[in-house]
Design a protein around this nucleic acid. Structure first.
Length: 593
RNA sequence: GCGCCCAUAGCUCAGUUGGAUAGAGCAACGGUUUUCUAAACCGUCGGUCUUAGGUUCGAAUCCUAAUGGGCGUACCA
């Protein structure tokens, strides 16, 4: 539907080849692309593949095909051939029609429901420390992918699998017990997740000291790590937790409660949300029945020590343990069980895991096992793997304090937005809450765009010493363009009732803008199919850029009435698409800035 | 050792199913405001697309190998 003219042109080109050269050219050999800016026209047919049939030079062939098309395709106004490229100029009527019948319609950019359910699992934090920049990337990616897939027609369930148990949690608990003196978020004024994170760091410090002492006594590093009294105590605490010890459970609940309150705040500022939470404390025992199922089916095998394995060497992978000899779970046991649980809960046709690329191998194994177990839904599983966020100094390490804290970073971004806005003198007439809201929108816009414009699989470099830009290829640039349009619309007294006149001649910047806007649904589709918010983010930038060009080249409010009304509609459509596209990448756009 | 991912301008990144003279932003330099918001627009500068082969009328894009970087290869999660 979006490509009718392309399809028509391809069809008529095939007809032309038949008429002119008595040959049939398969459709897949014909490519049509947007004309490069420096040439005349909007669409281009690559003629090289046709020369096989014409037995003529590319230029002569292009001229002949062009002449044929000119006769048979009424929308075609002119053409020219340069080298092997047949550039086509479509009539202004074609473009204005397209604008009227598609771009400006309320339904433009909306896909009907496809009746399918899809799950996106993202965020999935540990409850022993606060979120950092790496988690922000995960959260923004997951949220945006979910929104894009919704727009594309899926019913989407956003889930968060919270890692709320295990030895790392016990470390924080133990440290708090020892050195906390009953400190609470209320007593200290600390955000709960930060408070708990402090004790995690505290534990690690003490642990390292003990390791050093033991090493000084002649133990090997490996032995020291196992023998250190504090780690043994944490392990004992974990065992008591698993046994349901009331005191331990109470402490665990209290501290996790603090963390959740902190996370809720951070999620709120980030603007992400979830439809369903899973907790590992509920799911960590799952999966053992699947192990039995696998044994029964002969997919798994038992070794003499009673441990259970799967042999994936035929698939180019290794032998993989799926259950320990003592019958306890490993990570993948739990994941097998959780995958089944999620499917039983929602019966979705696809399920996406937003998890960093250090777990590529794990997910390959997980999906392969489920496939071998004959789970029909296994083919719908997808690991959305993304690259790490690195600092100039290298990796972020929580325990070494080289992390960029999520809350701190958001504070800084908002503060910078405030400073910039005040410098530019754009705060006049705004209420205090209006200002605060604006600074938040802009600061988050800069941060989110910075993270989302990069393809997920690529690693991302963040330099804390170089502040994130607010000019150029950035979120605020796009937000500014939206605000600017809103201002023109207001001054022009635009409303939906403004008559839509259509000029007989379009300026080239208008034509380019219409063509670009018309691509919007195709961009949503591509982003959805490839799970890539980056494509949509980059598209929004192109739209904003093209609009600004148009804005500078053509006068809107001072144009003659017909052109003025048309340009108001064009501006309004642009604003709508910018707002809609940015919403799908999780970025709000302001009415003014 | 083996496996996966990445490599494009000084920096950060785009680059559609293989197509024209590889594009943006930042940085540097110059210009645009009595006119709709200058967080803007226009211009200049900047490239052996890591390297070497191969496939093709045509390769940043596909194949092979090498180099550099990252990750994984745990009875950790």
């Amino acid at each position: 539907m979006a490509n009718t003219i392309q399809q028509q042109l391809i069809y008529h080109t095939q007809q032309a080849v038949k008429a002119l050269y008595q040959s049939d050219i398969p459709e897949n050999q014909l490519t049509i692309q947007e004309t490069r800016k420096e040439f005349e026209g909007q669409l281009t047919i690559v003629v090289f593949p046709i020369t096989r049939f014409s037995k003529k030079s590319p230029e002569a062939t292009g001229a002949e095909i062009g002449a044929y098309l000119k006769e048979h395709v009424p929308e075609l106004a002119a053409f020219n051939t340069i080298k092997g490229f047949l550039n086509l100029s479509l009539s202004d009527v074609y473009w204005t029609d397209l604008f009227k019948t598609h771009v400006i319609q309320e339904s433009f950019g909306r896909f009907p429901s496809n009746g399918k359910k899809l799950m996106v699992e993202y965020s999935s934090p540990n409850t022993n420390k606060p979120l950092h920049l790496g988690h922000i990337r995960n959260n923004l990616l997951g949220y945006s992918v979910a929104e894009i897939l919704k727009a594309y027609g899926y019913e989407v369930i956003k889930t968060n699998l919270v890692n709320d148990r295990g030895i790392h949690i016990c470390k924080s608990m133990l440290a708090w017990q020892r050195w906390g003196n009953g400190e609470t978020p209320e007593s200290s004024g600390l955000k709960g997740d930060h408070l708990v994170g402090n004790y995690y760091v505290r534990f690690d410090k003490a642990y390292k000291q003990e390791i050093d002492m033991l090493k000084a006594q002649g133990l090997s590093e490996e032995e020291a790590k196992k023998q250190a009294p504090i780690i043994r105590e944490a392990q004992a605490m974990l065992q008591r937790w698993e046994a349901g010890d009331e005191a331990v459970i109470a402490l665990w609940k209290m501290m996790n409660g603090w963390v959740y309150a902190g996370f809720e705040q951070t999620y709120g500022r980030l603007g992400v949300d979830f439809d369903k939470y899973y907790y590992e404390s509920d799911t960590y025992l799952l999966g053992k029945d699947i192990i039995q199922e696998g044994l029964d089916k002969g997919v798994f095998f038992r070794k003499v020590d009673n441990s259970v394995w799967i042999d994936l060497t035929a698939d180019g992978l290794d032998e993989k343990l799926v259950l320990r000899g003592d019958g306890t779970s490993v990570y993948i046991t739990q994941d097998l069980g959780t995958a089944q649980l999620k499917y039983d809960d929602f019966h979705m046709s696809e399920s996406i895991y937003v998890v960093g690329n250090e777990q590529d191998y794990h997910f390959k194994v997980l999906f392969l096992i489920l496939e071998k177990l004959g789970k029909p839904w296994a083919t719908g599983l997808f690991h959305l793997s993304y690259g790490m966020v690195d600092l100039p100094s290298g990796k972020m390490k929580s325990r070494e304090g080289t992390v960029v804290d999520a809350d701190d970073l958001m504070d800084e971004m908002t503060e910078t937005a405030k400073k910039r806005t005040e410098e530019l003198g754009k705060t006049e007439g705004l209420s205090d809450t209006g200002k605060a809201h604006l600074y938040h929108i802009i600061g988050m816009g800069a941060l989110k765009y910075f993270l989302l414009k990069v393809e997920p699989r690529k690693r991302l470099l963040f330099d804390p010493n170089e502040s994130i830009d607010f000019q150029g290829h950035t979120g605020p640039f796009i937000q500014y363009t939206h605000a600017r349009i809103k201002s023109v619309l207001a001054k022009g007294g635009y409303s939906q009732a403004t008559p839509l006149a259509v000029p007989s001649v379009l300026a080239s910047s208008e034509r380019d803008l219409i063509q670009l806007l018309h691509n919007y649904p195709a961009v949503i589709e591509a982003s959805a199919k490839e799970f890539s918010p980056a494509q949509l983010a980059n598209y929004c930038y192109e739209v904003a850029k093209q609009y600004n060009k148009f804005y500078h080249e053509e006068s809107i409010l001072k144009a003659e009435e017909e052109a003025r009304d048309f340009r108001l509609h064009l501006s309004s459509a642009t604003a709508r698409i910018i707002a809609s596209g940015m919403r799908l990448v999780g970025i709000e756009v302001p009415e003014r800035m």
